[in-house]
Design a protein around this nucleic acid. Sequence first.
DNA 1: CCATATACCTGGCAGC
DNA 2: TGCTGCCAGGTATATG
Length: 271
Amino acid sequence: MPELPEVEVTRQSFADRIAGARVQALHMGKPLRWPLGVDPKDVVGRQVIAVRRRGKYLLMDLNDGLLLLHLGMSGSLNFAQVQGPRGPHDHMDLETTQGVLRLHDPRRFGAVVWAPSEQSPQAQKLLGHLGVEPLGDAFDLRAFNVQLKRKQAPIKQVLLSGQVVVGVGNIYASEALFLSGIRPTVKAAKLSAPRVAKLHAAIREVLARAVAKGGSSLRDFVSAEGKNGYFQLEAAVYGRTGQPCRICATPIKHIMQGQRSTFFCPVCQKY
DNA sequence: CCATATACCTGGCAGC
DNA sequence: TGCTGCCAGGTATATG
């Protein structure tokens, strides 16, 4: 579920409601991705100041230290006044004076890590190497060009790595490359300046659009069984192997790159 | 430093 | 029906 748009929509769904709350208790379930996580004494009694996002991480500022949350591949957060009994995949309950924040994460690739500050070694170990935010002013076209020129890996994998720009996951990488007419296998350094400009615009467009309609699609996702309502419905190429390209009707191709699926139109994406 | 592979974990689904 | 193998929205870590 979580690429940047889903994480951002999740953030927006509870940030205002939890701000100002005081943490009363913390219950952790099975171990998450990293053994170093959070101890109740790090957070109990602290006040929640704000919830920010950096890439696919959520940063919950406390009046002392902060909590870093990551949803991994299968995580979701729910903030409610009252929560039912914890199920086998509920691995965090953060009880506050304004509600309980629950992390549901069947695969447990998510993370909950406490750090004394954003600049601390614990936090920087996770955040320090991240690329720029795609929806902010820091995502500068010239800088993007320069960064890509130094990468010999296929553009799809460069986007996924998060080292140049954060938040572009496996779905949006394929979608952004389709929108900009770029073959996912092309070395990043070989892209022409005009192509990079198209890609730059496509990344912003696909992510911003998903955030804008993320609210409804995420609600659908929660209320529905299965995966209906998620971005897949509007996907141009992701998950559409063999189906006709929406532009030229050529069958969409599926390949593996770095053990991840990539989808593209062999006719519309030639550069 | 760079590019690529591996590991982590569970559930759903296609194929037999 | 039940089993097996494969696939899934991420990323730290290991390896060449």
